[in-house]
Design a protein around this nucleic acid. Structure first.
Length: 215
DNA sequence: GACCAGGCACATC
DNA sequence: GATGTGCATGGT
């Protein structure tokens, strides 16, 4: 049994399914993926609630809305001027290529779609893959800061390796599986947030004593 | 008051 | 390819 499978089993057995992504619609997933860039999820939720209260969690509405007005609504998420532009760029792409429909976007081939998403201003590899996996159910593994931190602390891969190198690790280890990739990444985030905050290998961590430690 | 949070673009070497 | 910087709020 390989290390990645072992990590997954340990996390799933102790803390259970995470039911990701926390959103009502695929469109809301995409919006959340942009808003959560380098930002605490609690702040993102506040911004999402403001969008909903303004009845603006909608591709057409946001397409028409000036970036400045959008920035005011998403203020709690931080970097609001930057993120307003990034949201506008994504929504322009969504509306002009798929009529504003995430369902229509989903019908496109995953590999082609990833390249297109990456070409949008403000969409990098993690945001693209989050949208692909959690909004469009394409089998790509999402790599984030928690994933890198946990894997490097367990001496599976060096923290400074590239996004692609981390991702290849998972793509080679597992059959492409949306359900597994969904759950695995969500578990990394939960464990990273909850247990690895103060110090690595705290007593409560589900990964404690899982692998031989060299530190 | 410092530090951190589910990145990304851009400048520079 | 690697490294540094700006972007900003709200919780601990």
């Amino acid at each position: 049994m390989n290390k990645l499978r072992l990590l997954y089993e340990a996390m799933f057995k102790t803390i259970g399914p995470q039911h990701w992504w926390p959103a009502d619609t695929p469109f809301e997933v995409a919006v959340g993926a942009i808003l959560t860039q380098n930002t605490n999820w609690l702040n993102v939720e506040k911004a999402i609630n403001k969008l909903k209260a303004a009845k603006a969690m909608d591709a057409r509405r946001l397409y028409e809305m000036p970036a400045h007005n959008l920035a005011i609504l998403i203020r709690p998420a931080g970097y609001f001027n930057v993120k307003a532009k990034r949201l506008k760029a994504f929504i322009k792409f969504l509306v002009e290529h798929y009529g504003g429909s995430m369902t229509r976007m989903k019908s496109e081939d995953g590999g082609m779609l990833r390249e297109k998403l990456l070409s949008i201003h403000g969409i990098g590899p993690e945001t693209a893959d989050s949208i692909l996996l959690y909004a469009l159910e394409k089998p790509v593994f999402v790599i984030d800061a928690y994933t890198k931190r946990i894997l490097s602390r367990h001496h599976i891969m060096d923290q400074h390796k590239s996004y692609g190198e981390f991702q290849d690790l998972f793509h080679r280890a597992f059959r492409r599986n949306v359900k597994l990739f969904n759950e695995y990444h969500a578990l990394f985030v939960k464990v990273g947030k909850t247990y690895c905050k103060t110090r690595p290998f705290c007593d409560e961590c589900p990964l404690k004593n899982l692998l031989p430690r060299l530190v």
